[in-house]
């Protein structure tokens, strides 16, 4: 017990609190000057915008993937199932260079998209694709157990009573899995906002356009501006915290609806 607390404090709590103590040491004007510079604000928008877009794409397709793996049988299912967890196991830098090789202008997929006027790499779209890769297992693994507990009989009863498949989905399936879906969404979002390794290769890292907030922290540190890095980190942490709080409230609300 004592060991647990001491180790936790030493490795996690004390180091994390230094960010806030350091930030409190900055003057208000200095904090706003670095933490809310136009370049920093642009970076927050890129980070949170792409993370949100990726989490939304994953919410839709992750739900489809979870559904297919819970309900259907098909050849190679076990291999595909293991593959879903690849983003947890594959180092982010490896994912980053692989995605860049695929989506760069001369890459496997990029060469076909470029003539269509779609630039993926070195663009917010590329960042979103990297975050889709990173976030997918969060959604699938959150939704799967709830879907597995859902009995097919209720759906069949609804269908036989004349409900359309869309009605069954909206009225029966979606409300039951919504809390789990929101959990997965929040996890994917939080991971996406802070993600660094898989993003920096494909992002192109152009200030005001495709520069993510974590990279801006690194840039500040490389210029020995600890104050700047700290201010940006605190703003990021606070926005993430506010977002997660909001999602938790939404989740509590949807859970109450399920229980009712």
């Amino acid at each position: 017990m004592g060991l647990t607390l001491a180790w936790l404090s030493l490795i996690v709590l004390i180091p994390l609190s230094t960010v806030f103590i350091r930030a409190a040491g900055l003057g208000v004007s200095e904090f706003i000057e670095v933490g809310f510079s136009s370049r920093a604000i642009a970076a927050y928008k890129v980070s949170f915008g792409t993370a949100l877009a990726a989490a939304l794409v994953n919410a839709v397709f992750g739900m489809v993937v979870a559904w297919v793996f819970v309900r259907y049988e098909f050849p190679g299912k076990r291999i595909f199932d293991a593959l879903i967890d690849l983003p947890f196991a594959l180092p982010t830098a490896v994912a980053g260079i692989a995605l860049t090789a695929i989506y760069a202008g001369n890459g496997w997929v990029g060469q076909f998209l470029e003539p269509l006027g779609i630039k993926v790499a070195y663009n917010p779209i590329g960042i979103t694709i990297a975050l889709i890769f990173i976030g997918l297992p969060f959604i699938v693994r959150s939704v799967e157990p709830v879907l597995a507990d859902l009995s097919a009989e209720v759906e069949e009863a609804a269908l036989s009573l004349g409900a359309t498949p869309v009605q069954v989905f909206v009225r029966i399936i979606l409300p039951s899995i919504l809390p789990a879906l929101l959990t997965g969404f929040a996890l994917a979002l939080a991971r996406g906002v802070g993600e660094y390794g898989s993003v920096i290769f494909i992002a192109g890292n152009m200030p005001f356009k495709s520069e993510i907030a974590p990279l801006l922290i690194v840039t500040q540190l490389e210029q020995y501006s600890y104050a700047g890095a700290t201010a940006i980190a605190v703003v990021m942490l606070l926005i993430s915290f506010a977002m997660l709080l909001f999602i938790n409230l939404a989740q509590a609300w949807s859970r109450r609806r399920v229980d009712a």
Binding site: L13, P15, T18, V19, G194, G197, P214, Y224, L244
Partner: peptide
């Protein structure tokens, strides 16, 4: 306590590096 143990999962890895810079870096404590 359980929430605190999970904390490193919800913090950006870059921030994880930053906190040790603030503690042990040249300009750190």
């Amino acid at each position: 306590l359980i929430t605190f143990i999970d904390l490193p999962f919800s913090v950006s890895p870059v921030v994880a590096g930053l906190v040790y810079m603030l503690l042990f870096g040249m300009q750190g404590w």
